[in-house]
Design a protein around this nucleic acid. Sequence first.
DNA 1: CATTATCTTTTTTTT
DNA 2: AAAGATAATG
Length: 733
Amino acid sequence: MINLDHLNAQQRAAVTAPLGQVLVLAGPGSGKTRVLTQRIAFLIEAMGVRPHNILAVTFTNKAAREMQHRLQSLLGDAAEGVWLGTFHANCARILRREAQYLSFDNNFVIMDSDDQQALVKRAIRELNLDEKLYRPTSIHAAISTAKNNLITPADFPTQSYRDEITKRIYERYQSLLRDSNAVDFDDLLLETVRLLVDNPQVRERYARRFEHILVDEFQDTNLVQYELLKLLASIHGNLFVVGDEDQSIYRWRGADYRNVLRFEEDYPACQKILLEQNYRSTQTVLDAARAVIDRNKHRTRKHLFSERGSGERLVLYEAVDEHAEAAFVVDTIQQWINSGKARGSDFAVMYRTNAQSRLLEEAFLRAGLPYRLVGALRFYGRREVKDLICFLRLVHNPDDEVSLARVINVPPRGVGEKTMVALQLTARQANMTAGQLLIELGEKGEQSPHWGRFSGRSILPLTDFGSLLAGWRRAVADGLSLPGLFDRILLDTAYQEYIDDGSNEGKERWDNVQELRRLAYEFREGGLTAFLENLALVSDQDTLPEEAGNAATLLTLHAAKGLEFRFVFIIGLDEGLLPHARSKDDPEEMAEERRLLYVGITRAKDRVYLVRAHQRSQYGGPEIQEPSRFLEDLPESLIQRQGQRRQRERWESPESRALRTRLFTPSHQQTSAALVEPRFHPTDRVRHPVWGEGIVMESRIQDGDETVDVFFESVGFKRLVASLANLEILPKS
DNA sequence: CATTATCTTTTTTTT
DNA sequence: AAAGATAATG
């Protein structure tokens, strides 16, 4: 049974809001996930809505799982039947059901970003265009933006010659997709909208079904998603959306926080509820976050408050280079853990770009500290994993040209560029897809009318591969299980010999293959279709083990949204990195970088460490870094500097330095003393909360803090930072 | 014609 | 520093 007593007034108002449109603007840490789940529970239990009639949309699978989990514990089996998932997953579900109305069949594959890139490239090549002039990345971005704004190739605006070309690539790309019986991420949304617009009876069926629609992270919806919601809510009009303009960080993906304003315009009767009490962070953390975000214009100002007390200042550390940056992070975490005041899982290290994780990983490994890495060295992006996925995709849908191109020569069987071109040409002439042609060659061999079209050198490998493919498909048709198929592919291609050359790296690659096999085993019930859909839609962000023991978390600022940690490190606070260099020409993008930092800071419950490096090896040689402009927005009263002084302070007058020192005296008594002279001396007897009694061997001032070497009776020699270690000096006996 | 060696270019964030 | 494209080689 749900219990509304532990909700505050605003939260309760949201959970129990009457029917119609509800817009909840929820600051960080204000319990928005809770409101969302309680609302669903309220609808089911108090309003008697059947779960079947509820659609709940999240942005990540992680968020969807989290909500599923909470609903389960709130309602038990009564929660069964709610349509809960990401926009993309829900759309894929609809498209598979309604394939009869669409231009592709229901065993369509979903192209991931690598595949999309490959297709764009192919489209450019087929049109004989210069790849230097029309970079696949930038063309793909243009296509994606168009799709996110409901623009089909036919509607693509052509104001310049380049637009003209882009339009032609877009058209070509789209037909390549359809020839492969495939859709890309953007199509999932776009095609669903088109389905609902073009087929009133289908629209009515879904709109009637979804009596209640709830949306999380509404500020990150794009135009297609907004239209989709409108269509789905067109009968009942019960739209409950939760969001925070200040946390909108997916502009580059078409997200438009102005959908919040649009919502208020489109639904003038909507109720607006603000959640302003923060249950996560200390007031100091909130003040700092606010100092950063208040510089942004065009936003609903919220007055976040916390009852958790003022808390400690944010620490700013300026390292000499990126190695020292990583070392500072790891050392500090280690000291906290050694002091017994924190455990590994209390920490998160956040960064702007995935590339920054590598040095951190190395530092963690060297220190022997466990960590879990979100995303980055993407499991699904790894060569061997992608190879096998493509084999499976090809069995599922032989028309998939991208997969075919990828694996036809894996392991090398003598099929190169020329052979591929010949294959494609012959296939087109025969009005078949390359995959179909291969299968025919494989099945009929010399009997095939196409046999003679190929040179003696290329026909054998092609026939070879074709019969493998045909064999796998037959086996699946005869009821071979998914894990069975997986093993058969490995066996037939001698994949292990190919991938595992005996080196450490080879071993690791083979382990990845085994890991994928384990996943396939989990999907043995759902079969190939469910497995592939899951692989396409479940991001790497979701790959990490839920509770990876006692490990610190390493993740991008984007991936951090929705999470919380006691201690948050944000590294790379340099111009060019955060804000990222690519944002500096566009004020809107600059505002988004600011929101990114805001999201990072507000993840912290207790402490925030902001870290930067004077010098960084960006690409090739080392480069001098300027401090991030965002640092200047933080009032000095909220900041405690650690480590090296900033250069300009060297030229400071003694008076102003004295004043500064007084002003910045940290709240810890020990630390302030330590800045001047050591508090501990050799031969002092000390007590540590975890390791008990020991003797000070040496003590020195280092990086503005006191480092003490202590010999403990229990664990022997340890190096500690005085301000963190909580050492107690014992009277000399 | 496929594979290998050398040179060039390139860096955001993710469903 | 790594991936991708181009040139040389077998």
